[in-house]
Amino acid sequence: MSYDASNFGVVTGSSALATVVLLTITAIIGFRIGRHNVVDVTWGLGFVLIALVCALVGEGSAWRRWLLFVLVAIWGLRLALSMARRSAGKGEDPRYEKMLYDAGGNRTLVAIRKIYLTQGLALWFVSLPIQVSAAAGGTLNWLACVGIAVWVLGVVFESVGDKQMDEFKSDPANKGAVMDRGLWGWTRHPNYFGDSCVWWGIYLIVAGYWPGALTIASPIVMTYFLVFATGARLLEQHMEQRPGYAEYRQRVSYFLPRPPKKQNSTS
């Protein structure tokens, strides 16, 4: 088997349906509790659900369908648990509050359109490499091995960065301070960089099996969201007034990791 276009139709249709059901449930919960940041928990779970649908419905190479499910499940479940733990007992995420305030108009309709509908479309589109791969054949090749390595790099960056941030925040002496240690001294957003690597790794795993290479727009869109849309950019806007953050921005790379500049640098 090389590629079964009809099976892809079944896979992508099933993935879209699963996404609609999940986001509808999420929206109901979000409106009921008055916090739309519940969608952050659904973000990771949504990819796990789609990967599971692809593994079950797809008729392509079984080893790759289930490998992708395992990789996505490891990443997505860890992310969902982390988001659930961080948001427990807290109010709305300032990013969503600002988004709804800036948009104006009916907040319910704005939330449906700009949060839930946008996230649903993003889930489906970013997961296209997994969907296409589910209907494709092929044996393990070197590009897939590179993809696995990139995925590992991403998971390490994200999980270690989150752990370092959690430990930093757990110390009362750090209240109001800027985290600039560990991976956070090499990039201001190690978790978002890790996310990007995860999805570029998944893309590389499927890129060597036609027509997987054509789904390159998916990791590009994911990286755009992480860097410019709902990820790093909004977080930077929220943090820019914090004392010491301007100096931190001068020393530490925005996204791609690199050694920090010296504190007395004027560049």
Results as ranks from 00 to 15, higher is better:
residue 1 M to K: 13
residue 7 N to H: 04
residue 11 V to E: 02
residue 15 S to C: 14
residue 16 A to E: 06
residue 24 T to I: 02
residue 29 I to C: 09
residue 30 G to L: 00
residue 31 F to L: 12
residue 32 R to Q: 01
residue 34 G to R: 05
residue 48 V to K: 10
residue 57 V to R: 15
residue 68 L to D: 03
residue 69 F to N: 04
residue 72 V to W: 01
residue 77 L to A: 02
residue 77 L to G: 06
residue 79 L to V: 02
residue 84 A to M: 10
residue 90 K to Q: 08
residue 94 P to Q: 02
residue 111 A to L: 08
residue 112 I to N: 01
residue 115 I to A: 04
residue 118 T to F: 08
residue 128 L to C: 04
residue 129 P to G: 09
residue 129 P to F: 03
residue 131 Q to Y: 04
residue 142 W to C: 01
residue 143 L to M: 08
residue 144 A to M: 14
residue 145 C to D: 09
residue 149 A to L: 09
residue 153 L to M: 15
residue 159 S to G: 12
residue 166 D to I: 14
residue 172 P to Q: 11
residue 179 M to H: 15
residue 180 D to I: 09
residue 182 G to A: 11
residue 184 W to M: 12
residue 190 P to Q: 10
residue 193 F to K: 07
residue 199 W to N: 05
residue 199 W to D: 10
residue 204 L to K: 12
residue 217 A to F: 12
residue 217 A to K: 02
residue 227 V to E: 02
residue 229 A to D: 06
residue 229 A to H: 00
residue 232 A to V: 09
residue 234 L to H: 10
residue 234 L to A: 08
residue 238 H to C: 03
residue 239 M to Y: 02
residue 240 E to A: 03
residue 246 A to H: 13
residue 247 E to P: 03
residue 252 V to E: 00
residue 254 Y to G: 05
residue 255 F to N: 01
residue 255 F to Y: 07
residue 260 P to E: 06
residue 260 P to D: 00
residue 265 S to M: 03
residue 266 T to D: 13
residue 266 T to Y: 10
residue 267 S to D: 14
